[in-house]
Design a protein around this nucleic acid. Sequence first.
DNA 1: GTGAAAGCGCTAACAG
DNA 2: CTGTTAGCGCTTTCAC
Lengths: 342, 342
Amino acid sequence: MNKKKNKTKSVSIKDIAKDLNVSTTLVSLVLNNKSKEYSISDITKEKVLAKAKELNYKPNRAALSLRLGHTKNIGLIVPDISNIFYSRISRYFSDLVDKKGYNLMIYNTDENPEKEKKIIDSLLEQNVDGIILTSTCMNQSEINILRENNIPYILVDRYIQGIEASFVGVNNYQGTKDAIEYLIQQNISKIAYITVDPTSVSSLDERKKAYHDTLKKHKITPNPRYEITLSYDNIEKDVENKIFNLFRSEESPEAVFIANNKAAIETLKRLKSLKTSVTQDLKIVCFDNIPLYDVLPYPVTSVSQPILQICNKASEILFNEILNGEADEQKILLPAVLIVRN
Amino acid sequence: MNKKKNKTKSVSIKDIAKDLNVSTTLVSLVLNNKSKEYSISDITKEKVLAKAKELNYKPNRAALSLRLGHTKNIGLIVPDISNIFYSRISRYFSDLVDKKGYNLMIYNTDENPEKEKKIIDSLLEQNVDGIILTSTCMNQSEINILRENNIPYILVDRYIQGIEASFVGVNNYQGTKDAIEYLIQQNISKIAYITVDPTSVSSLDERKKAYHDTLKKHKITPNPRYEITLSYDNIEKDVENKIFNLFRSEESPEAVFIANNKAAIETLKRLKSLKTSVTQDLKIVCFDNIPLYDVLPYPVTSVSQPILQICNKASEILFNEILNGEADEQKILLPAVLIVRN
DNA sequence: GTGAAAGCGCTAACAG
DNA sequence: CTGTTAGCGCTTTCAC
């Protein structure tokens, strides 16, 4: 029992004009609240408004975009929408952009540079008024095209070396340093570092550097065995052996620092199946503060990112460029805060 | 040091045509791979292609949309992008839609019917080719407008009574029934039910019904004290007292069934701070299977939704309507599976 | 107070 | 093999 359907052609100002025996100009003027400006009579105005409502008129955005040259659309590109850090970012931006009277379009790259490139292209074709980019950090040339097209955009969370653009993110270095020093203060020196694959991204890079620097500062020689990188694509498999090996030998670490929430969840899962004797006194510190840590019956100290502030600031800078054309290049690092749990 | 910038007008087929002293038609034909069809000479073709590349030509989607009457854009509306269930849905759809050569635009309503209405309007104005809707279930009339406009759309996860549309979701009734019976089989009859506010949505409604029906079937009189509804807007506050009260009296439940992951996370958090004596032997079963349950050192049995299948099926139905105009109304309930943890 | 006409970028029917 | 032209829906300049 198939019913073949066609999208019904929607009503245009032409339809309204025809019904009312007026010009499309008149209709357009009224619908854009320019009645006063053009001293259109109240009767005419009301007639138009009533007809528009009656026919359930909706402006055609494509026509508007073509005519006006802008869309009131902002594109947000995130690397992994199923990661709560990015889904929270999406939620905040969705609100902020909405409040500015713009429309947020969210896109997911899955940490895939190719996909990111395609999305940027598409955003350009769609003529969005601005782009918020959490990049895979592997698309320098594509991003430079944004610059060439002079389309306002801002880098969030992940910085890209050599790109002319404003950036807002958390101070990964300070956050990690605080975390490592917190451990060292407790006379812990055997600190493992667990991270995840796309280590090209600035945030993970800075965290690792802070880990090394801080150990060095306290004259602790880093043990290469303690440094583990999980592969993003098959993290669940990868965690199996690597975490097991970490705790197998005599030289088990006294603490682990886990560089992001994805790695943390998998590591914690694996830790659960290890002998508790091994992990009982293990101190765990993770970057990103996620709800999980408030549920676990054992303490996980975490480095919390000021997500709301990041989004606020980024939105402010982006809209300042869109609305006022002011494109000062700003790099803003917001402080991370250590949330100690005992 | 402000630099005023303007979005540079991007290059059009006109620019290419002018540079090459050919017509825009010619350029359009080549760029749309119709060279053979119109037997355009290879030299001309190559010239056009080269020029397009050189000028970094990108088609203008607004013009395309206006001309062609479609956009190759699909809109996805979710009630809470920061809920992992919906962010997973978003991720899968993003992939599926991409594979069809379409573009997914993700929108967040925050469980706010007003916002949902605005988004639907906007999608209509943007002339999307299809809509995937996880509704607040409070916008019947707006959704009917979709029907009137004959724009393909599909309801996912949440069903709306009295709406003519296809639907794909999990069998909430069966999933909950299985969970409750699993508890009853263990001779547990004091089962609390914890849910969250927008109980207007079909999924939560069906789960509650299944809870009641299953108790009844086993001749267990439901205890109103065991039924707790947390408010979505300030769930963290609300959970404080309500959960405390639940376990305060003599008549503590032996098990809790928690109707979704948001409520579960908050409840579990609260449970942690209660005397373990109260909660030690408590059986916990939750709807939605989230990574948290694999990390917790105590067992939480969960009802898992076949998210990928839901998305696959929904995508199939939607694209069947978009591509082939076949709009059979289908209601599809996929089975939930109980994941027992001990 | 209101209307005619141009044009945003593109495709497709038609012409040659 | 290639070009001319109309028109998608809208706003805006100019005219009366």
